Deep mutational scan, measured.
Amino acid sequence: NITNLCPFDEVFNATRFASVYAWNRKRISNCVADYSVLYNFAPFFAFKCYGVSPTKLNDLCFTNVYADSFVIRGNEVSQIAPGQTGNIADYNYKLPDDFTGCVIAWNSNKLDSKVGGNYNYLYRLFRKSNLKPFERDISTEIYQAGNKPCNGVAGFNCYFPLRSYGFRPTYGVGHQPYRVVVLSFELLHAPATVCGPKKST
């Protein structure tokens, strides 16, 4: 009989979020998941679920829940969905086509923008091939755009693969920082350890 609540607040209220190319993952297990707390949290810009209804989450049990978190621009949030393409979905964070879970995003301009620009948040701009679902690539190898080998030196046709967002408070909404948490639900042939409040007695 599990009684402790799942530590969703640790994920959602973290002081610093990860850059999207180096997205953070927390495994959540052996706890009671009260999703209504999240669902009623006012400032969400997006709360979209795939393969599961957000209002039914509290009735369900899962083997594991993974909480992935990172920061992207407002106009990139739409790429955090199954079957998407674009710089983020291709080179930074890719969801599987059969994704079961929820994508939760909110504007973090007050936290993550600075006058003069916040350059701490990076994304991958160049990559030889697209990421596989949930693949994480933190390499900083110089990207070779031409035929000539770069030998690890940036220059003509040789690019550092990461780019900084440089968030400023005055940017338009599409270019403002958004914090994103992706909850993915794993249902294995194993005992369920993460259940909603109704199922955990």
Rank of each mutant, 00 (worst) to 15 (best):
D97H: 13
G146F: 03
N107H: 04
K128S: 14
V182R: 03
E76I: 03
K48R: 14
F99R: 02
A81T: 06
F70R: 02
G83L: 09
A145F: 03
V153H: 13
F99V: 03
F99E: 00
P191N: 14
Y159A: 00
D90A: 09
C150R: 03
P177K: 02
A192C: 11
F8L: 12
L188I: 12
R163Q: 15
L60P: 08
G117F: 03
N40G: 10
D34L: 05
P197K: 15
S19H: 06
C195N: 11
A89Y: 03
K114P: 04
F12W: 05
V20M: 01
S113K: 02
T100K: 13
G155I: 03
F156Q: 06
N130R: 15
D98L: 09
R27Y: 11
Y165N: 01
Y171Q: 00
A105S: 14
P133L: 03
H175D: 06
T201Q: 15
P96E: 04
Y159H: 03
F160R: 14
S69A: 07
L122Q: 12
A81P: 01
T55V: 11
L95Y: 02
T193I: 10
D34G: 06
F8C: 03
D112C: 01
Y39H: 14
S108N: 04
S113L: 01
Y21M: 07
F12K: 03
K114R: 12
P43Y: 10
E76H: 10
V115T: 11
T140E: 15
Y21G: 02
A190F: 11
A105G: 05
F47K: 09
N151G: 14
G116P: 09
L188K: 15
S184I: 09
G146R: 03
A145P: 02
S78T: 10
K199H: 14
Y39G: 12
G152W: 06
L183W: 04
L187M: 14
G146K: 02
L183C: 02
I80F: 01
F47M: 13
S29D: 10
V77D: 00
V180K: 01
A46S: 15
D90T: 08
D59V: 09
Y178V: 15
V103F: 02
W23K: 01
F167Y: 06
F45Q: 15
I104N: 00
Q84I: 08
F45N: 15
C61I: 09
N151R: 11
Y66M: 09
R168Q: 06
R136Y: 06
Y165E: 00
F99H: 03
K110Y: 08
Y21C: 05
A81V: 07
E10T: 10
V65T: 07
G51K: 12
D97V: 12
K94W: 00
I88V: 10
F41H: 15
Y178C: 11
Y143W: 04
N24R: 15
Y143G: 01
I104R: 01
N40D: 13
Y171S: 00
Y93N: 01
D90K: 13
S36E: 11
F41N: 12
N151H: 13
K94D: 01
G117P: 02
R168K: 04
A154D: 11
L38P: 05
Y119V: 07
R179M: 00
K114M: 11
E135V: 07
A46H: 15
T85P: 07
T170L: 03
Y165K: 01
G196K: 11
V77F: 08
Y50N: 01
R136V: 08
R179S: 00
G152K: 11
E76N: 02
I2K: 13
D112N: 02
T100Q: 10
F44T: 11
R16M: 10
E186W: 11
K114H: 11
D112K: 02
A67S: 04
T201E: 13
T193Y: 12
L162M: 07
V194T: 12
F41Q: 13
Y121H: 11
A145T: 06
K132H: 11
S78L: 09
Y91Q: 05
L95W: 01
N4P: 10
Q84L: 07
R16K: 15
D9I: 14
N13E: 08
H175F: 12
F17Q: 04
Y123V: 15
Y159N: 00
Y66D: 07
P54S: 12
I138G: 08
F41L: 14
S108R: 02
V180M: 09
D9H: 13
T15G: 09
F70H: 01
W23F: 11
W106L: 08
S139M: 08
K56A: 13
F44I: 12
E10F: 06
N58K: 13
Y35F: 15
Q176W: 02
Y123E: 05
H189A: 14
Y119G: 08
N107V: 04
N4W: 08
N118C: 05
V115I: 15
F45M: 14
N147Q: 07
C31F: 07
A190M: 12
Y21N: 07
I104K: 02
P54K: 15
T85Y: 07
S53A: 12
D98R: 11
G196M: 10
D68H: 05
F12G: 04
V115A: 11
S19I: 01
C6A: 06
K199S: 14
P191I: 07
W23R: 01
Y93F: 05
V65E: 02
P177R: 03
R25M: 02
N13Y: 08
S108C: 06
F99C: 00
Y50T: 04
S69K: 04
E10G: 08
N1T: 12
D98K: 12
P169E: 04
S36A: 11
Y50V: 03
Y178I: 13
R16C: 09
P133Q: 07
Q79D: 04
Y93D: 00
I28C: 07
P177H: 01
G101K: 01
L111R: 13
G51M: 05
Y50A: 01
G51P: 02
Q176L: 04
V103A: 02
G146L: 01
I72W: 01
V182D: 00
Y66N: 10
N107Q: 06
F17P: 05
V115D: 10
K56Q: 14
K198F: 12
K128D: 12
G101Q: 01
V182N: 00
N157H: 02
F167W: 05
N40T: 13
C31L: 06
N120E: 14
P133R: 05
G172N: 00
S139L: 07
C150F: 01
Y91S: 07
D137P: 03
L111D: 13
C61E: 12
S200W: 14
L125T: 07
S69Q: 05
Y91V: 05
F44H: 14
F12L: 10
C49Q: 01
V37P: 08
A67R: 04
L111S: 09
K48I: 06
R73Y: 04
K198C: 11
N87P: 15
V182H: 01
K199L: 12
D34T: 08
I104G: 05
V32Y: 12
F17K: 02
P133K: 05
R168Y: 03
F99D: 00
D90N: 13
L162H: 03
N147D: 07
S200T: 14
G172Y: 01
G101D: 00
P43I: 05
F185K: 04
F99P: 01
Y159D: 00
A33G: 08
P96M: 04
A18P: 15
F126H: 06
